[in-house]
């Protein structure tokens, strides 16, 4: 039947157009000379100069990158431990509770997570005096917590996929569990650790709602600054920053995909 031949490609093209047209227009209009952004009036890099001169955006970017790196690393350690416990340990008290608790942040609305952590920090401060006020530390604690859930899911599926007999063989040859983990398990799950860390990093960098609740004066993250700017309308310097971020992310994803395709082609040949 002829209809199927054009219906699917057409539907998919419309879908991809929907996904990409707004992003592309944002990139194009970041080079617009007109500050109104949506009316084209010639090529200019004025928006990028505005971005460079902006007193808030670049410091906030730097702060957010640092918070994301630290949070992703904490989440990587906790999430990997959690995944190992859930997949490799046969049965222990509270296993179902741990599984439920670690997956709950995945479906928890951000506003609930945000208010819950803020009220915890306020209560803790009045009871034990720590953490002192809110700021970078409380944002890192909050981000590490919800990122742990994502890292656990990623590492868990990799651990469940691979053959346990390798670990058992090492164990039979007398290696201690710690040695088995570092010599056998870790190299095998390394790709999952990389993608888990990157996922956690991206999620932390992107979070507006939770950070807004738990941040303090002087610790505004990048999404908070962007939100306060675009809430009132268009902001050319945000377009410029978005273009840079999209460029970096897109080249990273494209390179990773090419690398992955080469790798799987090589595996097929072998």
């Amino acid at each position: 039947m002829g209809r199927n031949r054009w219906f699917l490609p057409l539907a998919a093209s419309v879908g991809f157009l929907f996904l990409y047209a707004p992003i592309l227009s944002l990139v194009i209009f970041s080079f617009n000379a007109n500050r109104l952004v949506t009316v084209w009036s010639g090529f200019s890099t004025q928006a990028y100069a505005d971005l460079w001169a902006d007193p808030q955006l670049l410091p906030a970017t730097w702060l957010s990158l640092q918070i994301a790196a630290v949070s992703a690393t904490i989440a990587l350690v906790l999430g990997t431990l959690c995944a190992v416990a859930l997949v490799r340990f046969r049965r222990f008290r509270g296993k179902t509770v741990l599984q439920a608790t670690v997956s709950a942040p995945l479906v928890m609305p951000d506003v609930i997570t945000g208010i819950a952590l803020l009220l915890l920090f306020v209560t803790m401060q009045s009871l034990i005096g720590w953490p002192q006020g809110r700021g970078v530390l409380t944002i890192i604690l909050a981000h590490s917590t919800f990122c742990t859930a994502y890292v656990t899911v990623v590492v868990q599926s990799r651990l469940a996929d691979f053959d346990m007999s390798l670990e058992e063989a090492a164990m039979d040859l007398g290696a201690s569990p710690v040695r088995v983990f570092f010599d056998i398990t870790l190299p095998i799950i390394a790709p999952a650790l990389v993608s888990g860390w990157l996922l956690a990093f991206t999620l932390s960098l992107d979070d507006l709602v939770i950070a807004s609740f738990v941040s303090g004066p002087g610790s505004s993250t990048l999404p908070m600054i962007i939100f306060s700017k675009v809430r009132l309308g268009v902001a050319p310097e945000v377009n410029a920053l978005a273009t840079i971020i999209i460029g970096v992310v897109a080249s990273g994803v494209v390179l990773a995909t090419i690398y992955g395709l080469r790798q799987s082609a090589r595996e097929k040949q072998a």
């Binding site: 996904l19 990409y20 962007i226």
Partner: peptide, 19 residues
């Protein structure tokens, strides 16, 4: 191409849509 937008900022994509 489906996954790529997910790696870019959610907030910036909503802003792009508003434009």
């Amino acid at each position: 191409l489906v996954i790529l937008p997910f790696w870019t900022s959610f907030l910036l994509r909503v802003y792009a849509l508003s434009g």
